[in-house]
Design a protein around this nucleic acid. Structure first.
Length: 285
DNA sequence: GCCCAGGCACTCA
DNA sequence: TGAGTGCCTGGG
């Protein structure tokens, strides 16, 4: 596979200051990448991309044109966001200082939907295996690079014929009927993924939650990582634990957490969640 | 062998 | 409206 059809170097110091490719890709928002000796290889649409970072340069090579500015959310001012959040309290300041290069990726909504349905009660390493298997079996083969074959994530059309048993054979367990329902509703346009772009956060969430197996957490992840809706604040066990520890005396309910973060983090809550999530994982509450 | 993981749906009060 | 429990599977 020729990955020199697309080449770009990012040299802008303000972007470099707020961008660490390893922090971005390994923070539980991206599950289909391979870390090599000099960078990270991943699939975007039907292309293969190799990204490497040095102190004063980020270099991206790829097999096709790549809207990297959207994918890496480069037009958003992370410096300003970090400054606002750093002023809130010392915990957040510490969490941010440990992850100065963290960003929210903008990925494909359908891939995010299935990935986060699969993610429930699974560790990241297991999620990766399952998503990779699904892609290898039902996605389009893109090509070979450095002796590894890469596949695109399957489209709704490619998954349309699959039955619940097919998913169970892929070891997706009790999530199998959920995935089947998601694929069906997307194909039937009962859930119009394109349209959610133009809906508000609340409306989009309502639509996504009509899918079996999609609750608040999964819907929030899809809205954050697939649509860039920063009002979403996915509350998983890690975030629940650390918010309770840092900001409450007793273990708070989900409702209490939601009310608290809306008032406290305001428009920055999507990325605040990401800093706290990484912080919680790092210091192992 | 047992427990539980980056949830959700269903039941029951 | 909230608490309790089963669900697949694999790893510690």
């Amino acid at each position: 596979m020729n990955i020199h059809n697309f080449e770009v170097s990012i040299l802008d110091p303000t972007i470099l200051k707020n961008f660490d490719i390893y922090q971005v890709m390994t923070s539980g928002q991206h599950f289909r990448h391979r870390i090599t000796f000099d960078g990270i290889v991943f699939v975007w649409q039907d292309g293969i991309f190799h990204i490497s970072q040095k102190e004063r340069e980020i270099r991206i090579l790829g097999s096709k044109a790549f809207d990297f500015e959207t994918f890496f959310d480069l037009t958003r001012d992370y410096g300003a966001i970090k400054e606002r959040l750093t002023r809130k309290d010392v915990f957040l300041k510490e969490a941010i200082n440990m992850h100065l290069g963290l960003r929210i990726l903008r990925q494909d909504p359908f891939e995010m939907l299935l990935t986060f349905i699969i993610s429930q009660s699974k560790q990241i390493s297991q999620i990766k295996v399952l998503v990779e298997r699904l892609s290898a079996l039902h996605g389009t083969k893109i090509g070979k690079y450095e002796d590894v074959i890469y596949y695109g994530f399957p489209t709704p059309e490619q998954l349309a014929p699959l039955t619940e048993m097919d998913y169970r054979e892929m070891k997706l367990g009790y999530r199998s009927p959920y995935i089947k329902d998601a694929v069906y509703k997307v194909n039937a346009k009962l859930v119009d993924l394109e349209k959610i772009n133009h809906l508000s956060y609340e409306e989009g969430k309502k639509v996504l939650m009509t899918i079996n197996g999609v609750g608040e957490k999964v819907a929030d992840c899809v809205l954050l990582f697939g649509y860039g809706k920063f009002e979403s604040f996915p509350i998983d066990t890690w975030v629940k634990k650390i918010i309770g520890k840092l900001y409450f005396k007793e273990e708070p309910s989900l409702k209490e957490i939601k009310e608290f973060v809306a008032g406290y983090f305001q428009e920055d809550r999507g990325i605040a969640q990401q800093y706290l999530f990484e912080y919680a994982r790092r210091i192992k509450f």
